[in-house]
Structure formats: C-alpha cells, structure tokens
Amino acid sequence: MENTVPTDSQLIAEIKDGSADALEDLMSRYESRVYSLAYRMLGNKEDAEDVLQDTFLNVVRSIDGFRSQSSFSTWLYRVAANAALTKLRKKSKREKSEGEFLDEVYSVREAAHSESSLVDWSDGPAERLLNDEARQVMDEAVAELPEKYRVVFVLRDVEGLPAAEVADVLDLSIPAVKSRLHRARLYLRNRLSDYFTGETV
C-alpha cells in the first residue's frame, strides 16, 4: 500500500472519473484559502460563504475542461476571484470612485513635498497598531479600494501570491499588477496614517 499524499493532478484525474472522495480531498486542501480570499474581498461571513460555494460549484462544473499543464491553484484562484468580483458587483458599494481613490493616493505627493514633517507611526507597539479598532479601520480601508485594486492587493499582499501568479490569475501584465498594488498600498498607508496620527494626509 502506498501512503503518499496524492498530487492535485492525481485528485483531478480521479474527480474526472467521478470520485466524490477525491473532490472532498481537493476541497479540504483549498477551501480555507478560497474562504480567506472571499472574506477579504467581501468583508463578511455570509458573502464569503456564498463565494466559497459558487467557486467550488464552478470547479465541479468546469473541471473536465481543466488542463493540468497549468497550475490548479492558479486556476482555482481565478475562479474564486471572478466569483468574488461577481458577488461584489451585486452589492451596495462602499468603495471609492476611481477619481476619489487616485486623489487620495496622490495626496501623498503634496504631503511629502510640504514644509511640515510627516508623523512616523511605523514603530508604534503592535498592540496599538493591531488593536480591535485599528483592525476595523484596516478592514474599512480595504473595502474602500476600487475592486480592480482590491483584488490585486488581497491576492498579492494578504494571500501572499507572487506578482507573476497574480498577473496570471487576473490576466494582467506584471507591470499592471505592480502599479495597482502600489496605488492600493499608498491609499491604505494614507488611511492608516490618518487614523494613527490624526494628520490630514
């Protein structure tokens, strides 16, 4: 008896042959990552659960078309990101318009140029920077990101995918991923600076 853990490709081959157990195994392997991505994109448990179910229903529906020369996790992230974006578009928006967002992003230029010194809050104690109220501000700031910036930020910085894989998941060029990531980060930095220092930028 072999006791080795099956690869994704082996599980997928079994799923294509109709194995419900292989499908359970594959879900167990990836469900936490999909849930985390969905929760970060949508911001609540109910919507995250819907996206989780939609993602795996889509996987079941389209697994026959999956070709194993590409990575399953990249393909799954693509299905999950699309499910999350579809859900997001049906919801009332907290996100900023592109114009408001970019104004906020580039306010950092004036701030850096200004005569007055910026406040450096970066060495604040972790218990202050990550307390419940600060965590809420961080969540709200992510919810304000326009979706095309939010999905890049969540995949790259929160889920920790390499830029090249984020590009693959979202069908973007790597420079486009980096540019969206940078703007998202600057926006979040400005919002956290507002909160931690009370400064206006």
Binding site: V108, A111, A112, H113, S114, S117, L118, V119, D120, W121, S122, D123, L129, R185, L186, R189, L192, S193
Partner: peptide, 11 residues
Amino acid sequence: NCRVVVSTLRR
C-alpha cells in the same frame, strides 16, 4: 518626509 512614507508604507 520620503523616509516616513517608506517606513509607514512598509509597516
């Protein structure tokens, strides 16, 4: 100021 932006962005 740019140093502060770097440290706060990183954080």
